[in-house]
Design a protein around this nucleic acid. Sequence first.
DNA 1: AATGAATGAGATTTCATTCAT
DNA 2: TATGAATGAAATCTCATTCAT
Lengths: 193, 193, 193, 193
Amino acid sequence: MAKKTPETEIKQKIYLSARKLFVEKGYHRTSIPDIVKDAGVSIGAIYHHFSSKEELARVIHEDAVESFLSRYQLYVDSQRTALGKIRGFVELMLSWADEDLITVNYLLHARPKEILDCNFTICTAEGLEAVKKIVEFGQKEGTFKDADQILLAAFISGPVMRLIELKTDGIITQPLSSIIDTTTQLIFDALKK
Amino acid sequence: MAKKTPETEIKQKIYLSARKLFVEKGYHRTSIPDIVKDAGVSIGAIYHHFSSKEELARVIHEDAVESFLSRYQLYVDSQRTALGKIRGFVELMLSWADEDLITVNYLLHARPKEILDCNFTICTAEGLEAVKKIVEFGQKEGTFKDADQILLAAFISGPVMRLIELKTDGIITQPLSSIIDTTTQLIFDALKK
Amino acid sequence: MAKKTPETEIKQKIYLSARKLFVEKGYHRTSIPDIVKDAGVSIGAIYHHFSSKEELARVIHEDAVESFLSRYQLYVDSQRTALGKIRGFVELMLSWADEDLITVNYLLHARPKEILDCNFTICTAEGLEAVKKIVEFGQKEGTFKDADQILLAAFISGPVMRLIELKTDGIITQPLSSIIDTTTQLIFDALKK
Amino acid sequence: MAKKTPETEIKQKIYLSARKLFVEKGYHRTSIPDIVKDAGVSIGAIYHHFSSKEELARVIHEDAVESFLSRYQLYVDSQRTALGKIRGFVELMLSWADEDLITVNYLLHARPKEILDCNFTICTAEGLEAVKKIVEFGQKEGTFKDADQILLAAFISGPVMRLIELKTDGIITQPLSSIIDTTTQLIFDALKK
DNA sequence: AATGAATGAGATTTCATTCAT
DNA sequence: TATGAATGAAATCTCATTCAT
């Protein structure tokens, strides 16, 4: 498992409650007392383990990015064809969302702008780089269209993100893993020459 | 012009400053004093024109939805082919984003959950319905695949939303209207039989 | 009256309560709720008039310094002999302490170090300069000893400050103005050639 | 040596760091974590050796008083003339300040009001008594003026305290022991008949 | 003796909102 | 209409202290 888990049991409880509440209610509508209630710990314990509410959000976010990147290696880098890589990416995201919708949503929606003054769009940036690498590979392979890489990348991440959103909003009810194949095919249809 | 414009100059100033700040910093990080400063009006003026901060957000949001729907009629409903409707939708969104990125972002990102307790997911709901109508049309026409409508809809809205995000983040620098044709083509390639 | 008085009645109440409490209990043992209770105003009113507790202390302090300087002009600068200036200084401090022990104590004891990170020892600095000017004058006049100016200055301010402290602590019970003459004489005996 | 030194090395470290920080930043701005950092010990160690932060302050203070009193015996009580006693007091204070400015400042400035609810003005009280004894001696001897004893006492302690303050603030840079003679002479000039 | 995780009361400050003018 | 002084609930965070190890 690539997920970095916090050391102590209490730290873990704080971490999980905070992540859940941040996704459910948003960062700003989640107060420290909310986390205290949900995690069943004291205020002091939170500040003992995390220097501030903001730092708590940052740690959660960085863990999610790290988790994404290690899954990416497993599902995408290991594939040797463009189609395989697309399928890997789709499978990574959709099955991960089935398994841990909270973390995936945190990754997709924790808009740093909402939390921090300075933009550290590590999410957008890292996510984009990862997907652009797939596009580059497909173009070198000769499988993909020669259109702008960023545009093509939007056709990989865009539909996947949208599907996860629709699952979160309860509009899609079936497991996302049941539509991995179709999704992969549609993306491929869009990108292939 | 479909945009409902506030009546007085002061109300207009409040409206524009609030919308700008909500997009720039998020709803919760924008305080009434922030709006006072930016708009150069008094606290009293804000509460004279809007009953609460929440109502201010709701008015802005509803205007954006209304604006979207009237543009939808113009660009999409008027089209008589599935391809035409896709092109219309893409053109509507991308040229609108070029023209008024703030409003479009407000529409896409104002997550009601962040603002209100009760979900008034008018955005997601309305947006989804609109796009699903295109899918239905294309399937009736016999042009589109017979896959799940929601899945196909995700291939229309997903990439478009992603492109607007990338423009907002400064990763795409060219006008979005310059990629209307290619985007349309890629969506069509994904959906067509 | 040289004392700058705050504009509104409420601001005035906050100012006076804060000054009283800061002197009585010290800056750090005086909480905002303490001031709220004593002044009979709301928390919000305090923050409406003063940007922070620290600023409240700074304003009080600066007023006291300003008040000191204008009294100094009146009592000391107007005198044309060294003895007259010493008497003026002693009278200024001791009669002021009789009249407004709180302000004088604030001036003498508000150790900026207790309140702020950076030292802005305006009190010490201003006070010292004022007293050093008397010493310079007396040396030019030929009345005072030729010892180090700072040392001589310590014989003007030191006993006066000590007397005010003893009055504050309740060890001296008579009005300080009753010992102006003797105090002046003793200082003069120490400094004169 | 009259100074009661804490028994263990760790207790000593805590004691010295606390005293230094109390003087540097004031009692209230010094937190237990500050002492932990400065002394390089654990929280537990502090509470093992001292029952509370307040007790730590009290022990430091009482040590300083005790140290003062034993020095007083040595420097003042041993003298058999009023002039000798004044010189003894001045030497005691100024050379002690050169040697251990922190302790002396603690003695002079630790305003109990800042620390405790109940006044334990041991400093003011003990200090005053000591100096008043010199005045009594000088009056009995027939050397000193017949003015109020407290007033005369203020001319012994006031200038000395002021000089130490000026040294602490960096306004006096030379060693205070270099001005023992002049200071003695000036005090004597003020008090003598 | 020594540690440091855990506690929770209490501190300062913010900010949406009201209301007298 | 328009103003901004005033309110006070609620937010984040600090810190002296306890206690199991």
